[in-house]
């Protein structure tokens, strides 16, 4: 009788362990997938920017400096690797893009151009998608980090090297309102 109880306890503990382990794996995959989602949207943005700059160039002849900044920020963001680096570069790109959008407001000809309107909607949507993908990624990271750090799953996480993941955050130094100079 006693033997059976011990067996049941051990069996139950083993099943619980398997469930915990599978939870950790699923969480890690979700974080990985979340990061890929952000990546997809970032790439889409890299593709859209040159098109928009190309069209805008003809209308915004006085804003060559801003356009150059947009292109440079894009090149820098494309070179960034991993959540920590990407956070900084993307914040910069978002900043100059914001400036560009604000400037575009003062060019009625530009806004009247159907191609530009479509590109702007595409880019706005892509910016939103990046924000939402980041939100989802951060939620997944929090859930996984909780699993990795909480008892009893922390024991399994240590044993099988499930590390905590980086959040996609924006460093404080980058957080400042965009200055718009309309002359």
């Amino acid at each position: 009788m006693f033997g059976w109880i011990v067996l049941a306890l051990v069996g139950g503990a083993a099943l619980y362990g398997v469930a915990l382990y599978n939870g950790l794996v699923a969480g890690r995959n979700q974080v990985g997938n979340g990061w890929k989602q952000i990546d997809v949207q970032l790439k889409r943005r890299y593709d859209l920017i040159p098109n928009l700059v190309e069209v805008a160039k003809d209308y915004m002849s006085y804003e060559q400096e801003t356009l150059k900044q947009v292109v440079e920020a894009r090149t820098m963001a494309m070179a960034a690797r991993g959540p920590a680096q990407a956070s900084v570069a993307e914040a910069q790109l978002s900043g100059v893009l914001g400036k560009f959008f604000a400037l575009a407001e003062s060019y009625p000809d530009l806004k009247a151009n159907q191609t530009v309107t479509n590109l702007m909607e595409e880019l706005t949507s892509t910016e939103n998608k990046i924000a939402f993908a980041r939100q989802h990624y951060n939620d997944s990271v929090m859930a996984q980090n909780n699993r990795v750090e909480q008892f009893p799953s922390v024991l399994l996480a240590r044993a099988f090297a499930f590390g905590p993941h980086d959040y996609f955050t924006i460093p404080e130094s980058e957080i400042q309102p965009v200055k718009v100079d309309l002359r």
Binding site: G95, G98, A102, E105, T124, E127, N128, I175, V178
Partner: peptide, 20 residues
């Protein structure tokens, strides 16, 4: 959200972190 939902203009809050 970095840009205005209606006109696409940049928001002052563009670079604030998400209330994640």
């Amino acid at each position: 959200q970095a840009f205005c939902s209606r006109c696409g203009g940049a928001l002052g809050a563009a670079l604030r972190p998400l209330p994640a």
